[in-house]
């Protein structure tokens, strides 16, 4: 039984990392305002949302299964307060931080109509911190970290996210960016110029 939980905990962690990677990629694509090949923009947004929810479910299973594992020696407090763990507290703590950020991002996303656009956006930026924390946790804590398949998997995820973030930073990332006026919504108020 313990072995089964352990395997499930490991497996769900790896799947969650894969799903988070897909979600980050789709999130960046959503921000660009571009469709994906044949997939319209609203579908990209919906898949982004659903993949994120699925990843969260996997993380929930990941936590619950490992709570029942005698080797990990997890306590409920380790789910929320980082760096208190009995085994590999630093690597475990990174995972805890990622979970905290995940909870914040998911709650503000699902309730964005109530928390408002500004809070939603500000908290959503934390995803860019959450993903590296999750990756580092999977490498540092993961039983499979030294296996070549896992190294290849982690490298592929990293390459994809780095490439997407690189694209995010280029001019022309947002659809229509090239033909829109640069004036940002938060442009400072101008001094009066009179004709």
């Amino acid at each position: 039984m313990n072995e089964a939980l352990w395997a499930l905990g490991r497996g769900t962690g790896v799947v969650a990392l894969a799903l988070f990677t897909v979600s980050v990629l789709l999130g960046i694509l959503t921000r660009s305002g571009r469709p994906l090949l044949g997939l319209p923009r609203f579908s990209v947004a919906l898949v982004h949302r659903n993949v994120s929810i699925l990843a969260t479910v996997f993380i929930a299973i990941h936590l619950l299964t490992l709570l029942g594992d005698s080797f990990a020696q997890l306590r409920v407090i380790d789910f929320f307060v980082p760096f208190l763990g009995a085994v590999k507290p630093v690597w475990l703590g990174l995972g805890t931080v990622a979970v905290d950020l995940l909870v914040a991002v998911m709650v503000t996303s699902l309730l964005r109509r109530y928390v408002g656009r500004r809070v939603f956006r500000a908290v959503h930026w934390l995803t860019y911190a959450m993903w590296p924390f999750a990756l580092a946790h999977s490498i540092g804590n993961g039983t499979d970290a030294s296996q070549s398949w896992f190294i290849a998997f982690a490298a592929a995820c990293s390459a994809a996210v780095i490439a997407a973030v690189g694209w995010r930073l280029t001019r022309g990332f947002v659809e229509y960016q090239g033909i829109r006026q640069a004036a940002a919504p938060d442009r400072p108020v101008r001094a009066r110029r009179n004709p």
Partner: peptide, 8 residues
């Protein structure tokens, strides 16, 4: 002038 006075 008016174009420049858009609140952005």
């Amino acid at each position: 002038y008016l174009a420049g006075e858009t609140a952005g």
